[in-house]
Amino acid sequence: MRHFANWGILGLTLIFLIGPFVIIILAGASAGPNLAFPPEGLSLKWYAKVFTIESFRASFVLSMALAVFGTITALVLGIPAAYALNRYDLPGAETIRTIVAAPIIVPGIIVGLALLRYVVVPMNVTVTVALFMAHTALVLPYAVRVVSSSMHNLRADMEEAAVLLGCSRMQAFTKVVLPNIRGGVLAAFILGFVTSFNQVPVSLFLSGPGVRTLPIDMLAYMEITFDPSIAALSALLAFMSLAIVFVAERLLGFSRYV
């Protein structure tokens, strides 16, 4: 009985969450010229068209690089911060927490505009670097918070015990803490990756001649036409991300930790 209720709740939630995705996949497979569901006949021509659009290739590479390097940088900065915030009695810990979390609550358009007006222009920073900075800062809150949350429930005495038993602090961290927060780190990476990859408002102002992230490029494309190729591209991107999660699951046992 409880099993049934469980699956009922999950089923409805998943339909709500996944339904639009199914519609996007099918709308992308339409033979007609418009985004429609049910599609007007089936064809893969829009999926094929995605690969012929040159600008998508360049913007895909840029978005990919930003998402991967930005998130890694955020984790390199964020994991020690999360660790320190959990394990040390820091002066101003709350301030540090707030500062690091701040990028999440600032409306993206303000961030983009602020960086353009006060960093890119006066300091002569290239748009690519500004994008990298903005995306790293945006991912940082996720890195700190998710890692922090998975560290929060890990008892500190295990680590203290390791130190007492002769481990160095670094060893205690790598042998006790890291394996236990692996799921959190991976979750933070995936969250950070998708946040960065799909980011629109921040990147809106941070694009330059020939430098444009994929979502901005998609938006620009949609200002001209609403044909199903955007649906097809979205579906392909989602499959790509799905593959990443799948590999993460296989290599690291994602679900055991999350």
Partner: peptide, 20 residues
């Protein structure tokens, strides 16, 4: 994985799905 999946899809596309 299925819960995470929608996060992978561009908000632009997900919003357009609702129009349909």
């Amino acid at each position: 994985g299925m819960v995470v999946l929608p996060l992978m899809i561009s908000p632009v596309a997900r919003t357009y799905a609702w129009i349909v």
